[in-house]
Every structure is written in structure tokens, then in C-alpha cells.
Design a protein around this nucleic acid. Sequence first.
DNA 1: CCCTAATAGTTAGGGCGCTAACTATAGCGA
DNA 2: TCGCTATAGTTAGCGCCCTAACTATTAGGG
Lengths: 164, 164
Amino acid sequence: MELPIKDTPSLALIQRGYGGAVDVEAISDCMQLLRLAKVLLGFFYARFAEHDISPGKYSVLMELLAQEEDESLSPSILAERIGVTRPTITGLIDGLVRQGFVLRRNLEQDRRGVAISLSDAGREFMRSFLPGQFDAMAGVVSALSAGQRQALRDALTTLEGSLR
Amino acid sequence: MELPIKDTPSLALIQRGYGGAVDVEAISDCMQLLRLAKVLLGFFYARFAEHDISPGKYSVLMELLAQEEDESLSPSILAERIGVTRPTITGLIDGLVRQGFVLRRNLEQDRRGVAISLSDAGREFMRSFLPGQFDAMAGVVSALSAGQRQALRDALTTLEGSLR
DNA sequence: CCCTAATAGTTAGGGCGCTAACTATAGCGA
DNA sequence: TCGCTATAGTTAGCGCCCTAACTATTAGGG
């Protein structure tokens, strides 16, 4: 999964009269946010691709790993926790089963459902993948000073509130 | 196009020993950035979907609108400017032609190529769509103070530099 | 002039997201 | 006990991203 990250020529079009009177500086700030959003997601998507997983598969593996070892989750619960639809979760599980990372078992007490759990191979994959992933996550903000990080937290909290 | 925006249980897994010794606060900061990235992109993707376009189609329309009215662009140039591959641009143009927003003409001087330009309907669509789009973009940062915006600019510049 | 390499764009197929519709099963009320 | 509603998961098809491979055309060198 890749995200096109180039800027659109918004500022040039504003200068040519599209959009009426707008706060050009605010638009610039928004473009910088959008660009950072795409770069950041792209950075992690590229890491996932190197390990032959996708963002969706990563989320499934994380949710399953967070369970106790002998527990499973249903596709419906997984879909809800990850924020995708049930057809999508079926496809992600299909792929993870093919990769050998996940087991799909029929439920005895309710033949409509299936139980999804991590396989040993899946658990092992996550055990080896996660240290580098968490290092990469920690590394994202490591170039910022402590003051910048606090300022970023405050700003992002406000932004999230107004975008929801 | 939608992005699953739920958090993964990274902090819970770190507490259970996956990932070794990591800076938990840095990971939290990164998760907040990732969440904001998905919320922000999702916000604009939802706006595009309301107008029956996709992020990729929007980028195509923007690049074509930025041309002089009697100029066209080739699919290769469009793909390069937007940051997608040529098969992808073919599909986006197909869709925009179907929607009547774009014209695809054969080149007389080089029969390998085609010339892509905005149709009158496409120009009209953008003329009506862009004011709201620029307002929405300006609105994203409107809840921040001037100091917060400057701090955000500084932090995002540093982050972009370290992620590239 | 011919042949090879390069270019432009498309097609095929896959993965991942969706909606709509389907099949199979469970639950509940009359 | 039966019929209807609800639930679980899957399938079909579409759009958008990709890679690989293809067709058609152009350019250039021998």
C-alpha cells in the first residue's frame, strides 16, 4: 500500500483566484501537516512491506498478540478493533493464514463463527519484528527537543479535537 | 479510500516485554502523530468522497487546473507530478474521462502519447469545489494559537527532515 | 535503410479498502 | 414447534494503489 505524497499546486491556484480570500499561511500549514502525514504513514508502510505485511495485517497481528496465549478473537471483534469492515477482515485473515501467521478454527458452540489466533510462527514473527518497530517509532521524534515535543503534543491534541 | 485509524495496542505490548527497553513517551508521541495523520487524511478523503472523487483524482484535477487553459499534460508527466505509477494514472484518467471531467486526445506529433486536459465540466467542478476545500484546509489549523502554529511548523520541519 | 533500444501507455493480476448481497446458523416470541 | 429477525462470515464486484508484461511507436546508430 503506498500513498502519493506530492503536494498539489494549491498555493499557485489561490494566487490565480481560485478559492477567494483565504488565509494563505493557514493553507501552507495544512499542506505541511498533510505532507508530514503522508511521509510518516509511508515510512511505516515501507517498513511493513519490507517484512511482507501490510498496515491492516500488522493491526491484526498486534490485536492477537495482545491476547493471552490461549485466547482467540472473532473476525467481527477484530474488524471493530482495527476499524475495517468484515469483508476486509476476511481478506486480511485469508492472507495471514496463507502466510502461516494466524490460525482460523471453527467454533464448536456457534457454527456461524470462527476463532482467530496467532500461530507459533506468527508469535515468533512478532517477537522478532516488534523491537525494530518500536525503535523506529521512538526514533521518529528523537530529533525534536523536549520543548518541541511538548509543544507538538499540545498542538496535536487541539487538532485532533477539532477534526473529529 | 479509507484509512483504518484505530490505535494498535503498542503500549500494552511494551509493558508485557515486547520490544525491550524503549522510550515509552516517545512511542506515545509517535502514536499521536500517526493517529493525527490518519484522522487528517481521512478528513479530506471523506470530503473528496462526498464529491465523488478520490485523492488521486483530486491531484490530477489540481495539476490540470494549474495549466494554462489551452495546455495539456501527458499521463507520464501527471504520474510523475502526483507520485503514482503509469498504470495507476491510466486508471485515474479512465475514471475522470467517464465522469466527464477530463479529455483524452491523441497526439498528432507522437502517436505513442495522449494529451490530457480539463474539460469545461471539470473546470467548472473545480471552480465550485475549491473554495470549500481551501476553507476546510484553512480551518484545520484555526483552533491553534499563533504561537502553537509556529511551534508546529518548527517541529514538522524537523520531523520531515529526519523521515526523508 | 534496418535493427535495436528506449519511450508511452495499456493490460493483467494481486492486495486492500469499500458496499451490496448472499449463505448458514442462532435466538426469540407466539 | 415454527417462523421471523438477527448475527457471523463470505462472496462478488468496484476503485485505487502496485509490479510485470505487453503493444505500439519513436529515435538513433551502424
